[in-house]
């Protein structure tokens, strides 16, 4: 059972890394902002599984905080980043 949980965590980490490649590629700042959302959900799932397997319920609180921070990050980004970029500009930012 223990091994199953660790394999699951590893798998989720890999999907997270795959998502990170998109952050590197962009091309728009909005694409990069998807990272916050990806982290919010995937990392929260990883932490929740970790809380179960390592018997550390406090990690659930970390997941909770991560969820809140992800929401705030996206909100802040959409409020602050008002600069209009030409569409399709690959190297913007």
């Amino acid at each position: 059972m223990q091994y199953f949980y660790f394999a699951l965590i590893l798998f989720l980490l890999l999907t997270l890394v795959a998502g990170l490649w998109r952050i590197r590629r962009g091309p728009t700042p909005a694409d990069r902002m998807l990272a916050a959302q990806l982290f919010g959900t995937t990392a929260a799932a990883i932490l929740l599984v970790l809380a179960e397997v390592s018997d550390a319920p406090a990690l659930r609180d970390v997941a909770l905080v991560l969820a809140l921070l992800a929401a705030i990050t996206v909100t802040a980004f959409t409020r602050r980043a008002r600069i209009s970029l030409p569409p399709g500009d690959d190297d913007a930012r």
């Binding site: 909005a30 929740l48 992800a70 929401a71 996206v74 909100t75 980004f77 959409t78």
Partner: peptide
């Protein structure tokens, strides 16, 4: 936690889409 993330991600996706 699930409810919170559901709400957060529905709102976040709408914000990013309207930003774009």
């Amino acid at each position: 936690i699930w409810l919170l993330l559901l709400a957060a991600s529905a709102t976040a996706s709408q914000l990013v889409a309207s930003w774009a």
